[in-house]
Each structure stands twice: as C-alpha cells, then as structure tokens.
Computed example of a mutant assay.
Amino acid sequence: MNGDRNATLPAADPFTSLAAHFGMLLGVADLETVVGHAWAKVRLHNAWLHGGGVVWGFGISVEGPSREVQVSPGLAVDGLGRELHLPTLSCLDIAQWLEENRERVTMRETPEGDTFDAHVVARFRACLARPVPALVSPCEGADAETAFSRLRETAELLLVPQRSVRTVRYPRLRRLFGLPGTGDAKRDAAVGREVDPLRARAENAAESERPDVWLDAVRRCAALDTVDRRPAGLDGQDGSALLPGAEPADVVLGDLTGLRLTTVDGATTACVGAVDVATRTSHVDTTTLVELAAAGAIPQGGACS
C-alpha cells in the first residue's frame, strides 16, 4: 500500500453528472462522478462569486520563548473554491523555517539585530483516512489488502518570505469608487481612461439624474470587468481550467514584519515588530453587507453623521 496519504478531490467537472438507470452497474468512476459533480459545483460557485478569503478565525501571534508562529482555528475559502478548515491551534517553528529558507529571506540590519519579513498562508490539503479491507481485483481470487475509505479536507500552514501582495479584482469598479488600482501603472492608466469620464459624468449630473447616471456607470464597469475575467489555466488539471485561481491557491492570513531571532545565554527567542492581519482578504456575511449598503446610501455618511 502506498504510504502517501495526500489525496485529490474528485471534482473535475461541474457540468457532467451521472445518468443512472435501473440495473446499471456502478464502478469507482461512476461514484466519483456522483460525488465530484456536487463538489465541483460548490468550488465553481465559491471561486468565482466569493473568491479566496478568510471566513472566521485564523488569529496570528508570535510566541518568543518557543520561537513559534501560532495560528488559531479558522475557516477560509481559497482561489479554487475549496474550504480550508483548521480545527486546532497550530504552530510554525520560525528558527527551523529560517534555517531552511535563509537564501530566500531578505535580511535588514537594525540596532536590535537582523530582521526580516514574512507572511503566513493557509493551503488546502486533502488526506486519506479510515483504512478498511479492500479487494484488489476479482480476477486475483478476491485477495484483500487495506485501502483508505475517507477523504478529509483540512488546511496546512506555511511561512512565505517577504510581505504579501494583494490580488486586485474588478479594477474598473475599484477605480469608479476611488479605491487603489492594480499597482501596474500602464494598466491603471488604461482603466482610468475608461472609468474617469463615467465618474465625472455621474458627479456632474443634475441631482435628479445622478442616481440613474451612477447606476449606469456601475453596470458598465461591472460588465467590462467580467468580460476581462478568465480562468487561470485553460490546460489546468482537476477542474482548474474552469476556475479563476491556480495551484497552490494559498490564502494569506497576515504579514509578520520585523521578525528576528535573538540568542542570550544560549537561549534563542523570537520577536516581531508587527503582526498585520489587515493584509488578508476577509469575507463578510451578506446580512451585514446589506446593512452597510443601506447606511452608506443615507446622505452625509448614514447614521453616524
């Protein structure tokens, strides 16, 4: 039996399901189609309509004496639409990680010592579990061996050198609402040439016409942004040809700036300048979004004015 317990979800095709009929013989491929169809549908919905981000939890702290990054339990969705669940408090050994990744780390000299930056990500992982007796082949006299009978979805944590870089989606809508762009000067300039006249037209419209003009600008920007969106890899595997992300589709949990290891009297401790979880993307439930939108629609900033 293969000792590798990593597994791949049978979620390749959200548009093909099983057409069962009376007396039909079902094999492994048929059962994978039954299970994988629903899995693939959920992934397709999550990836395109929600995107990668943290749903709850995943608090981050640095414990000096143990030289560990500690991450609390949490739930997230990655760029391929998979749910990442971390059920228990988990730790990453900073000293061991630095030893293994020193060539990839950019050190800075400070009065306190050499410091570096990193960020924490969660990555989807599926593991095989619950071994049971299994038939190798009816043609081999029904010899039995053990095979895993369950797939368990979880998340693994990784430290990545340098600070994280946020991915910007829907650049025209962001420009229309005055949010920062992609950071690509050429791309942002092109977006500005499209969007800035729409924004100016809405701002200069008569008060009675402004809602309709603004709504038209929103619809145009949304339409053009969705026209530009594409799956990440048309030659991808496991359904990624249909999805906006690509492996490993990590979910950023936060940045650690000014990390350093200090050794005094043979004891090494870890210190961090700042833990910044605002660099992650967070999912907000729809009820709260409706309330925020309603408050934002009130003149002069809503109920807080």
Results as ranks from 00 to 15, higher is better:
136 V>M: 02
223 A>E: 12
226 T>L: 12
91 C>S: 15
226 T>I: 01
210 R>N: 11
128 L>P: 01
194 E>K: 03
186 K>V: 14
80 L>Q: 03
184 D>Q: 08
196 D>W: 10
85 H>P: 00
84 L>T: 03
164 S>D: 15
130 R>P: 00
177 F>C: 04
220 R>I: 02
137 S>C: 04
189 A>K: 14
179 L>Y: 15
181 G>E: 10
93 D>I: 10
222 A>Y: 07
145 E>V: 15
222 A>N: 08
175 R>I: 02
221 C>I: 10
117 D>Y: 03
94 I>R: 01
146 T>G: 13
119 H>C: 00
138 P>Q: 03
226 T>K: 06
187 R>F: 11
164 S>I: 14
190 A>K: 12
85 H>E: 06
91 C>L: 06
84 L>G: 05
163 R>T: 13
134 A>W: 04
155 A>S: 06
94 I>N: 09
107 M>E: 12
101 N>C: 05
206 A>Y: 13
166 R>L: 11
184 D>K: 05
94 I>A: 11
215 L>A: 08
150 R>N: 09
135 L>W: 04
225 D>Y: 12
223 A>V: 06
162 Q>P: 00
119 H>R: 00
168 V>C: 01
144 A>V: 15
200 A>S: 05
214 W>D: 05
107 M>P: 00
154 T>R: 03
133 P>R: 06
212 D>E: 14
104 R>K: 15
223 A>D: 12
99 E>G: 14
143 D>C: 12
206 A>E: 15
115 T>Y: 13
205 A>M: 07
146 T>A: 07
178 G>R: 02
